[in-house]
Design a protein around this nucleic acid. Structure first.
Lengths: 331, 331
DNA sequence: CGTTTCGATCGAAACGTTTCGATGCTATCG
DNA sequence: CGATAGCATCGAAACGTTTCGATCGAAACG
């Protein structure tokens, strides 16, 4: 132990300064040789590269680089409880798009727990509402001047907002059901939140007396339970409008469990337009551009990191009619 | 513009040095007042806190702190394509446990894309195999001396390994099927990988001539397609053993689509022990401790960050018999 | 009363980069 | 041939902390 310490000396990772002196150049020249910020003669660069290789220098220490640059290269994303949020393929699809777009820009994506404040330096934060209303970290992030991108959220000062046209989508769906003759319509809701309010308003444009079920999480089991309780209480409707395809799937499962035919006895509609291969009926749903939503959020992040001005984005949605809705049953 | 610059001066975020001089103390005392590293008199501390508040100092710059401390407070987790990996609730359950455990330790969790190397400083990396064999970033991380924790992976030098007892679990499942009279058994496989090989070996302890289907991803649709092709090709078995519950669900759906009764005509078994509320049959499966696996990985990370020695972990699994397996049909 | 110990404070040295400005030096141009 | 560029290189100043070691009293001890 002593002898090995004596032989190898103190084990300190080599720094750029070590590389520079091994190559016989100044620190700044060595830096330029790697970053390419300023021109360096080929001979010098090769000498520096060789020195780096022989010392086992693995590239500039990111910690030091970050301090100097004033950036961490990390973007936070807050989605609430992970296992809850990502159980819905819609959230996953968006995350995927965000991740891809940020990767391409050389940024990392950090999962932020909702409640706690991370001691991690973040260049920006994406807040995906996922049915929540408030956010503990908001004030602190604003105080720290961290660029904020809010997805499907309420208007928060200082944030860039990426949203979809909940209201129009819900209204289109409502009209579709109305055209099919439905008059008694219920809606399975999410926790009170911006998307929930907007969609409900859209529904009420057509069905002013829509019956409200829930709230339920965007989750098969919870949806099943919520709608089950509602039916158990003696309520009924010829159509149930859900706030996600996953919820709708839960309602389909529960309806069938009770011997109801879909859409013969009850029409069921979803929201999002995700792929649920295990469900043997194609849901009538409001399709939202999940990938585009994620990319828009990522682009907003990049722009705000660069100090550019950003506009809020509202993405269009469209109705996709599947086999889960049909003519209202004749009484 | 000029006048405003003149009035407000250049807008620079206040630093601890500003706070210190505003409070009339030295930089180091100000630091101690916040971190509590050394005792500071109450009067002084309050003066410092007041100065910080009045200047709007939001706490130590994490970038600088990180450089000084030599830590970033960020742990990477590599799971492959996000939308693929997290489509399986098993992966999600583990991620959730990891996240919770790391949060408690004040560490952030960064999603690492498989292929690219991030320029982000990572204190450690968790690599969750998820059916892959190789890893582009491995060499670089080893060179950088980043602590590595591999979940369900092959033996990689320098890494701490967290695994489950695939083989024993698969063998127990095989014995269960054998006891039920099954002799012609097929298995739906994942991509060649450490878990796949181990589990197959476990199966072969009982069924030496097990028929191999796939490989397929851990995904309802892909599993459905793979087993569908296999059946189409004229193959048959009285039991199909899958590598995940999600796969098993896909096989159940496909079997029924073909008019096969489960488990009357074919028994179907899964792996993982996750909750699939939409499936109306409880799967016979090998239950693995997903939360514990995540926590073990997180604990290994914490230990290795602290430079402690870590032992590899192999977690036990157990068979859970559900309604998806039954006696082999009499020919 | 001299010596130790301890609490509070300070100055200065890291941490390892990137980048600004300056300095030669060699071509190029008129 | 003198002035002007432009290239290659260098030294030094940041970036904003944390922490090591020293200093200076005052309290505690024998």
């Amino acid at each position: 132990m002593l002898s090995s310490d004596f032989v190898t000396g103190p084990v300190r990772a080599p720094t750029l300064a070590d590389v520079a002196s091994a190559a016989g150049v100044s620190l700044s020249t060595a830096s330029h040789a790697f970053s390419g910020t300023k021109p360096v003669s080929t001979a010098t660069r090769e000498r520096v590269l060789a020195a780096a290789a022989s010392l086992g220098w693995t590239g500039p220490n990111p910690l030091a680089r970050n301090l100097r640059r004033g950036r961490s290269g990390v973007v936070g994303i807050a989605v609430g409880q992970l296992s809850t949020a990502f159980r819905d393929p819609a959230a996953l699809a968006m995350l995927d798009a965000v991740s891809e777009e940020l990767d391409a820009a050389g940024l990392g994506l950090l999962l932020m727990p909702d409640d706690e404040q991370v001691g991690v330096p973040l260049d920006a934060v994406i807040y995906d509402i996922c049915g929540r209303e408030t956010w503990g970290a908001y004030d602190e992030l604003v105080a720290r001047d961290v660029p904020l991108v809010v997805v499907e959220g309420p208007a928060w000062p200082g944030a860039t907002h990426i949203d979809i046209d909940h209201r129009t989508g819900a209204a289109a769906l409502a009209r579709h059901l109305h055209d099919l003759g439905h008059r008694r319509v219920a809606t399975l809701t999410l926790e009170a939140s911006h998307p929930q309010r907007e969609r409900e308003a859209g529904l009420r444009e057509v069905f002013t007396d829509v019956d409200v079920i829930g709230p339920s999480a965007s989750d098969v089991a919870t949806a099943q339970e919520a709608v089950g309780l509602w039916w158990d209480a003696g309520h009924a409707a010829t159509a149930v409008v859900c706030q996600s395809d996953v919820q709708a799937a839960g309602v389909v499962v529960e309806a069938r469990r009770r011997g109801l035919d879909v859409p013969g006895d009850v029409s069921i509609a979803g929201f999002d337009g995700v792929d649920l291969p295990w469900l043997d009926v194609e849901l009538t749903t409001v399709v939202q551009p999940l990938g585009e939503k994620g990319r828009a959020a990522a682009r907003a992040v990049l722009a705000r990191i660069d100090g550019e001005h950003t506009e809020d984005v509202v993405l269009p949605v469209h109705l996709r009619v599947g086999g889960s809705t049909g003519p209202a049953p004749t009484p």
